[in-house]
Design a protein around this nucleic acid. Structure first.
Length: 488
RNA sequence: GCCGCCAUCGUCUAGUCCGGUCUAGGACGCCAGGUUUUCAUCCUGGUAACAGGGGUUCGAAUCCCCUUGGCGGUACCA
């Protein structure tokens, strides 16, 4: 850790497309670690590859972070003491550092053409050797280098790695990892367009921004020795590293589009709650000591331990996410629920009903909901227009069971309607239930024989909410209208 | 190919660093039962795993080696 300052972590995505859920997962662990240590959570946009930039991608990243509740303490939007937070705007700094490395002999200009590099690679692959740059340009005399650079010849700057020796890396999650220099390639640090590559920009910015812990995905592990080399070449104390496992698809390969929706924001659109997503994501790779898996953000922040993250990759499985989302939906304050489900509701239908009606309908269907987007389907029974339409298509054959014919079922509805005519108590589920059950018992009937046909008549579905809840929601007039119409 | 990481129920995982308390615990899913007018919720119970082989040790899921498998990296992408 650096003197004077505490923990500072960064989330450093490239604005090259839709923010990925795996990316948000990395951001979450950075965020949790920052919050629990009282440190700063920094967003830095790594946009040094001009070819891959996608317009609007940065905004999507901000949006996703906000939606997941991971708003950065410092970043392109909010600013901060280490601005700019957009890497392409730090190009001068990167170029200076690249030149410094050349002066020190830790890097060198390379004038090789892509054709030469391609030939070299092919020859190496054919000889079954690891494809690596052969340091051809490292041998060019300094005077010649200066002349060629000054003349504007196309050049890159490459890292000048030792040919022998090993690097020992201590990872917070993986403990000790050893690399051999003779297996490493002299990668490009500064491209011919003047932009740095990830290796350079990342190391320089992490140091200058006083990042104390680099928490990133496992795919970066192989480049650790290069990053360590660079920090040391500059005479800097490297940050601590923690390499997270990869989020996997059902076939155990890195989670990608072909495994279904992986866009971080698509989960919002599918009706998942950010608090459920956070909780679920936190459970991938990390596990609370007390096995209590449903926990608030505060509890996650309090109990999360970076060193306890499981180093093996985790399959992103929707089944448990759906369950967790349901848990959060059921535990939510009802007014909050009404508010948050609104954007998912069919707007034309919504316009037909009052706020009280909405609330009542949602209370009835809440236990059945796993995603907010299910609201339309779950409450469809409440709308007369939907009922009228479905009534025309209804197959009375489905009313018949082993124990009764469709005609008998209709008879029970008839009986129930007669009873309803005598019902004069307040029209609410409790009162209806008490009185109806008593009447059914008095008539020597079974609850199911009467209530099942009635419920199907009212909702036109074999599975639906409690019949008395439905009647209360529909009101007396609509209940009678539906039953009457149903029988004709 | 080379380098690296990883390896416990179908899935997420606890246990592994500091061997015995592990006839391997929890959660999701699934199955069964209960509540019940259906579904869901809720409650109870069940199902199911230490990749394989060698060591070390009185004793190994835990330590070591090998094999196998999976994944990642191997770009003037990040």
């Amino acid at each position: 850790m650096r003197s004077g300052r505490g923990v500072r972590v960064r989330f450093a995505p490239s604005p090259t497309g839709e923010p990925h859920v795996g990316s948000i997962w990395t951001a979450l662990f950075n965020f949790l670690f920052a919050r629990q240590t009282g440190g700063a959570f920094v967003l830095r946009l790594e946009d040094t590859d001009q070819k891959r930039l996608v317009p609007g991608a940065a905004e999507k990243i901000y949006q996703a972070l906000d939606w997941y509740g991971l708003t950065p303490d410092e970043g392109p939007q909010r600013g901060g003491p280490f601005r700019p937070y957009v890497q392409s705007q730090r190009r001068e700094l990167h170029q200076q550092h690249a030149r410094q490395l050349v002066e020190q002999g830790n890097a060198y200009y390379c004038f090789c053409t892509t054709e030469r590099l391609e030939q070299l690679r092919q020859a190496q692959v054919a000889a079954k050797r690891a494809p690596r740059y052969d340091k051809h340009c490292a041998a060019i005399p300094l005077a010649e280098v200066s002349r060629r650079v000054a003349s504007g010849e196309n050049a890159v700057i490459r890292i000048n790695l030792p040919l022998t020796g090993t690097v020992v890396h201590h990872d917070i999650i993986r403990r000790q990892v050893t690399f051999r220099y003779d297996q490493l390639d002299d990668s490009v640090l500064l491209k011919s367009d003047g932009f740095p590559t990830y290796h350079l920009a990342n190391v320089v910015d992490d140091h200058v921004m006083e990042i104390s812990h680099v928490i990133r995905a496992e795919e970066w592990l192989p480049s650790v020795p290069k990053h360590l080399f660079l920090h040391r070449a500059f005479g800097w104390e490297p940050p601590q590293f923690a390499h997270l496992p990869l989020l996997l698809g059902s076939d155990r390969s890195k989670l990608s589009k072909r495994h279904g929706a992986t866009s971080a924001l698509s989960f919002r659109d599918e009706g998942y709650l950010p608090e459920a997503m956070r909780n679920f994501l936190a459970l991938m790779g990390w596990h609370p000591k007390d096995d209590r898996e449903v926990r608030s953000l505060e509890e996650l922040i309090r109990d999360f331990r970076l060193a306890d993250v499981n180093p093996s990759g985790a399959i992103f499985d929707r089944t448990k996410l759906d369950w967790l989302n349901g848990v959060y939906i059921r535990s939510m304050d009802i007014d909050e629920f009404v508010r948050r489900v609104e954007p998912f509701w069919h707007q034309a239908r919504l316009a037909q009903v009052s706020n009280e009606w909405r609330r009542a309908a949602l209370m009835i269907v809440r236990d059945r909901m796993r995603r907010l987007s299910e609201v339309d389907d779950l409450t469809a029974f409440g709308f007369s227009s939907v009922w009228d339409e479905q009534r025309r298509l209804f197959d009375f054959g489905t009313m018949a069971t082993r124990h009764r014919t469709a005609a008998q079922a209709k008879g029970e509805i008839d009986w129930f309607m007669d009873w309803l005519d005598t019902f004069s108590e307040p029209w609410n589920a409790t009162s209806l239930k008490i009185n109806a059950l008593a009447a059914i018992a008095a008539a020597g009937k079974k609850n199911g024989d009467v209530l099942w046909p009635v419920r199907v008549g009212l909702t036109l579905r074999p599975a639906s909410p409690d019949v008395f809840d439905v009647m209360q929601l529909l009101g007396k007039g609509e209940t009678r209208r539906r039953l009457r119409t149903f029988l004709t």
